[in-house]
Design a protein around this nucleic acid. Structure first.
Lengths: 222, 222
DNA sequence: AATCTACCTGTAATATTTGACAGCTTACCC
DNA sequence: GGGTAAGCTGTCAAATATTACAGGTAGATT
């Protein structure tokens, strides 16, 4: 907030997507946008056409709104409408930063200025590098907040054996194969996997694999 | 390369990890470090204790080597040895940047200066923001290179039905449940999943779920 | 017309998973 | 000593997945 004001920005928004599920992920917002705009945005389902969102969820580089205005807005009427309406509510120009984490959670941070494109170009250009660095610290801070939903999910405490069995499961090994790898009985492998499935609050192995990878319960061997 | 020299850095290295498997991921390097150091690094298996590596694979913020020297090096003899040896080969001080992507591939970019900590502190502080931005563009460029292994794996072309069936599988749905969701026979769901398993070159559903998520074949619904 | 791709469906044998039953050892902490 | 957590093992029945057999339609392309 202070950062935005200090560098000449008016509004900001931070949104994080927690991949508890691919079909219905959780979200965390830190909203510095006008509530009127947020309500309108949700009502219009702009999330699905917003080019800043699709960019931030697939790229690592920042995206300048000016660039969108020069491309997507000219090709797509709805996008043009989105940006026109945003501009009329004080979000004339700005920049959006993607943030990606090893866990798989994604976030984006947008900063807006209430100035015309020409007048705000320099402010944005001068701030981009520092802001890009800044937003990573914002994200690390958010992730650290207890009880934000993310930490609770990520902190489902799996024992080392449970993680070990899950890890080999992600490699396509059957319980019997894992029992040979770990030198324990097949029954014990099943036991550990069942415990992991219960702790992760999922229904079967496929589900457990998806969640364990998405939330970083099991990590790549470096 | 030009970037590093321009801002007073001597050496750099870029390393990307492609999560084709959690157990044995693929790597892509762009090596600007002395070969002597690389060989020594591999031989000593420094990857497993290097604090820049563990930081970059779990955090989104840059890490200053100076910080490591002040902490980890004092606690861990091996880390101290690593940094002492690096310094003697011209990698005295530097900074490392993590890069994370939605696909799950991770990368790191390190830039080193051959100056004492005191003499290089200002160079690093002044460059950090710009360099942080720069490395995201390096990474986007690497990802775009055809035949780098990543693209080939990611481009295993799954049909929309195959992806749909896989997506519901990651949610823990059985083949029968998916058949009800998609209004097709259970046999057809099995058919699509089998095709996906073959295309992804994996052995079963768990394996397919892991790879499809890791490589971004199936993506979160926004 | 022939070819290709995506999509769809069936049967049957075998392998694997899942759930429910029950109980063991070891280590650590209060 | 008692409690707790992690790890380990067994059997049995039912549900689900895997593999292999075989074959159909619709639309686009050559």
């Amino acid at each position: 907030m202070d950062f935005c004001v200090q560098y000449g920005f008016d509004k900001f928004i931070y949104a994080a997507r927690i991949p508890t599920s691919l079909v219905s992920p959780n979200y965390i917002f830190i909203n510095g946008y006008p509530q009127e705009w947020r309500d309108h945005y949700v009502e219009q389902d702009y999330l699905r056409i917003d080019p800043t969102v699709s960019h931030c969820f697939s790229k690592t580089t920042p995206i300048y709104w000016e660039h969108i205005v020069n491309t997507a807005c000219k090709e797509n009427k709805n996008v043009d409408k989105l940006f026109a309406e945003a501009g009329s509510l004080g979000l004339q120009n700005g920049i959006s930063f993607p943030i990606h984490c090893i866990h798989g959670e994604s976030a984006m941070f947008s900063m807006a200025v209430n100035l015309s494109t020409d007048k705000s170009r320099d402010i944005i250009k001068e701030t981009v590098a520092l802001a890009h660095l800044f937003v990573t610290y914002v994200h690390e801070a958010v992730v650290r907040v207890p009880d934000n939903g993310l930490v609770a999910q990520v902190n489902a405490q799996l024992t080392s054996r449970e993680k070990e069995c899950l890890l080999w499961t992600t490699e396509g090994k059957t319980s019997w194969e894992i029992s040979q790898i770990l030198n324990i009985s097949e029954r014990t492998v099943v036991f550990h996997i069942n415990n992991a499935v219960k702790k992760l609050d999922v229904v079967n192995k496929q589900h457990a694999v998806a969640r364990a990878i998405s939330l970083g319960h099991i990590k790549p061997v470096i």
